[in-house]
C-alpha cells in the first residue's frame, strides 16, 4: 500500500509532470488563464490519463511484448490515445451531456498533450505493474491539476499588475512558471523522508 501511495505522491508533487518534467507545457501555458477552465482541463486530462493507462498497459504487455513488436509502442500508443479521446467524447456526449458540456472543449486538445503519451510510456519504461501504473497515472493527473490551479491563481494576480512593456505576455508567464517550479523543488526528498 505504501508503495502505491509513494508512487502517487512522488509524481504528484516531487516530480510534477508540468513543473519538473516539462510535460504538458502547452495546455499549462494556454489554458491556465481562468480557474474554471484550468480545473476542467485538468480533470479531463486525468480522466484520459487513467483510461489511456488502462488501455495501453495491457496492449504493451499482452500484445506487443509477446509478439516481439515492442518497438511499435509509439505508433500504437498515440493511435490508442487518439481513439480513446474520440470515444470518450462520443460517450460523454450521449450519456452524460452535462459533463460533456464542461469537458467537451478540452477533450480534442488532449490528444496532442504530451503528458498523456508521456505517462503511458513512463509506466512501461519504469516497469510498473498494472496497479502501480494506475497510481502513477492518477498521480500525474492530480499533479497537473495542482500545477494548473496554482498557476491560474498566479496569472489572475498578474492581470492586475503593472508589468514592464517588454515582459508582457509570454516572458512574464514563463518567469512566473519558473518561480512556481522553484517552490515545487522544495518538496524534493519529502517522499523519501516519509516512506524511507
Amino acid at each position: 500500500m505504501a508503495q502505491y501511495l509513494s508512487i502517487m505522491l512522488t509524481v504528484m508533487i516531487v516530480s510534477n509532470y508540468v513543473l519538473a518534467q516539462f510535460l504538458g507545457i502547452c495546455p499549462f501555458l494556454g489554458v491556465s488563464k481562468k480557474l474554471d477552465s484550468a480545473v476542467g482541463m485538468s480533470i479531463a486530462v486525468t480522466f484520459v490519463m487513467v483510461l489511456a493507462t488502462v488501455a495501453t498497459w495491457p496492449i504493451q504487455h499482452l500484445l506487443l511484448n509477446p509478439m516481439g513488436i515492442g518497438y511499435l509502442q509509439t505508433v500504437v500508443f498515440i493511435l490508442v490515445i487518439a481513439a480513446l479521446v474520440q470515444l470518450v467524447e462520443l460517450i460523454l456526449k450521449k450519456y452524460i451531456p452535462s459533463l460533456y458540456q464542461q469537458l467537451g472543449i478540452y477533450l480534442p486538445l488532449i490528444t496532442t498533450n504530451c503528458a498523456v503519451l508521456g505517462v503511458t510510456v513512463n509506466n512501461i519504461e519504469n516497469d510498473f505493474n498494472f496497479t502501480e501504473s494506475l497510481c502513477n497515472s492518477f498521480g500525474a493527473g492530480m499533479g497537473f491539476l495542482i500545477a494548473m490551479v496554482l498557476f491560474a491563481g498566479v496569472r489572475g494576480k498578474m492581470e492586475d499588475s503593472d508589468i514592464p512593456e517588454g515582459l508582457k505576455g509570454i516572458p512574464i508567464t514563463l518567469m512566473a512558471a519558473s518561480i512556481l517550479s522553484v517552490s515545487f523543488m522544495g518538496f524534493s526528498g519529502v517522499i523519501e523522508g516519509i516512506f524511507g
Binding site: F22, G166, T173
Partner: peptide, 22 residues
C-alpha cells in the same frame, strides 16, 4: 546549478522571449 534544472529552463526561456520581444 539551478539553471540546468526545471526552474532555470522556464526562466531562461522567459528571458529569451523577452529579448526577442524587445
Amino acid at each position: 546549478t539551478i539553471l540546468t534544472m526545471a526552474p532555470g529552463g522556464f526562466f531562461v526561456f522567459g528571458v529569451l522571449t523577452a529579448i526577442i520581444n524587445r
